[in-house]
């Protein structure tokens, strides 16, 4: 491999170093784009034209801006409070259970290739307040570190369910890409879309279950750590003792 090939990696180097030194993300990307274009022998006009065309072509990624049109006002009208009230009615619910329930729901919709509003449209206005409500329903105040971790997990369950279950949709973008990649090889290989979906099922189940189970266990540990061992059990004990009313001592 010659110098002219290795030098194309300078943009990659800028990206890696930039993120490692926690520079501004937009600065890193603009620098990497300009430098890669320059060492690739592109003029400034070609560089700007590529930037323009690809940016415009990827506008669907900014759909969250459309969702913002209503989310702020939904929250103004008490969506977060109502979500917390709703989950408080489910006795013994924990943030981990809320995450798990959302993960399953999200996976089913993803298999039909449908997004449910993502972090902007659903995790922030509904899932987060439900998790907070589940803690507050036990009479505890949300711990900040716990909340930060739960936010990360909320984003995590959203992404994991979407990525690995979206491929279960026959004719989804992922399967089509694999099919065309294999068909365009020097020795073309034909694969059926349905076979690609079937082989994705065990991976999807493993990925979503791992996320749900690991997040649940981590949340339970944090519940014990931040709110004492009584917190996660108190309400379930209550319901047990209610059922056993008149049943004598334990």
């Amino acid at each position: 491999m010659g110098f002219s090939e290795i030098i194309t990696l300078v943009g990659v180097l800028i990206v890696i170093l930039g993120f490692a030194f926690k520079l501004d993300a937009i600065l890193i990307i603009m620098l990497a784009a300009i430098v890669t274009a320059l060492v690739g022998g592109l003029g400034p006009v070609d560089m700007l034209e590529t930037l323009g065309s690809t940016f415009v072509g990827n506008r669907p990624m900014a759909i969250f801006i459309m969702i913002m049109l209503v989310i702020g006002t939904l929250e103004r009208n008490g969506l977060r409070e109502s979500a917390a009230k709703l989950i408080a009615k489910v006795k013994g619910s924990t943030p981990g259970m809320v995450l798990g329930a959302y993960g399953i729901m999200r996976s089913i919709f993803a298999a039909f290739n449908v997004s449910f509003g993502g972090v902007a449209g659903f995790v922030r206005p509904v899932v987060m307040p439900m998790m907070e409500g589940a803690v507050e329903a036990k009479g505890k105040k949300m711990n900040e570190k716990h909340l930060e971790t739960l936010k990360g997990m909320g984003g995590g369950i959203e992404n994991i369910a979407w990525f690995f279950c979206q491929v279960l949709f026959v004719g989804g973008a992922g399967g089509l890409l694999v099919q065309s990649t294999l068909a365009n090889l020097e020795t073309p290989i034909h694969v059926e879309l349905l076979d690609l979906v079937i082989i994705s099922i065990p991976v999807a189940i493993f990925a979503v279950l791992t996320a749900i189970v690991v997040y649940y266990i981590r949340d339970r540990k944090m519940m014990k750590k931040y709110y004492g061992s009584g917190a996660s059990k108190s309400s379930s004990k209550k319901s047990v003792s209610k059922q056993k009313d008149g049943g004598g001592k334990r």
Binding site: E5, T8, G11, V12, I29, T54, F55, G57, A62
Partner: peptide, 20 residues
């Protein structure tokens, strides 16, 4: 940022970063 990153990806691809 999402659109900008997609653009960078296109520039990387055009420059042959993937092949290297």
């Amino acid at each position: 940022l999402p659109m900008l990153l997609a653009s960078l990806g296109a520039i990387f691809t055009a420059a042959g970063v993937g092949d290297v």
